[in-house]
């Protein structure tokens, strides 16, 4: 008997590759640290998961967030451009992310905070 597979409609699920999934750190949180919703879900303001509500991977730290969540955080002056989880300076990993308005805006915010920090440091030195 010969079995010939003509067509196979399989089912698969997609998952975000999280920062340090590659084993740099042991434990990776499954939930967004800000909205406490799993990464594979959406931030509270979005309807469709995936492309419409992408993920930001931290480069400085191992923390990941929904892009909309971290934008809201960084928009606040009080955030000082730090990661809300570990208080390191938050820098996202540009390699892993597509170029879109959201990420440009994220870059702007990060840059703004960096400038503010540098300014603060210079005034302190003086």
């Amino acid at each position: 008997m010969k079995v010939n597979i003509v067509d196979w409609h399989g089912v698969a699920t997609w998952h975000w590759k999280l920062a340090s999934n590659d084993g740099k750190a042991g434990y990776v949180d499954e939930l967004c640290g800000i909205c406490r919703v799993p990464f594979d879900g959406t931030c509270p303001n979005c309807k469709f998961p995936g492309d419409d509500c992408p993920l930001v991977l931290g480069r400085g730290c191992i923390h990941n967030f929904h892009v909309h969540c971290i934008l809201k955080w960084l928009e606040q002056e009080a955030s000082k451009g730090l990661c809300p989880m570990c208080r390191q300076v938050f820098v996202h990993d540009p390699e892993d992310n597509p170029h879109s308005e959201e990420f440009e805006y994220l870059q702007q915010l990060e840059d703004g905070h960096r400038l503010l920090r540098e300014k603060g440091e210079t005034t302190y030195e003086e």
Partner: peptide, 24 residues
């Protein structure tokens, strides 16, 4: 591809549909 950027797939083996030709 752009759709799969930053993502990976996991298979759910038991779901789906296969079309087969058996030669007997």
């Amino acid at each position: 591809i752009p759709f799969g950027h930053g993502r990976y797939l996991k298979m759910v083996p038991s779901l789906g549909l296969a079309k087969l030709e058996l030669e007997i």
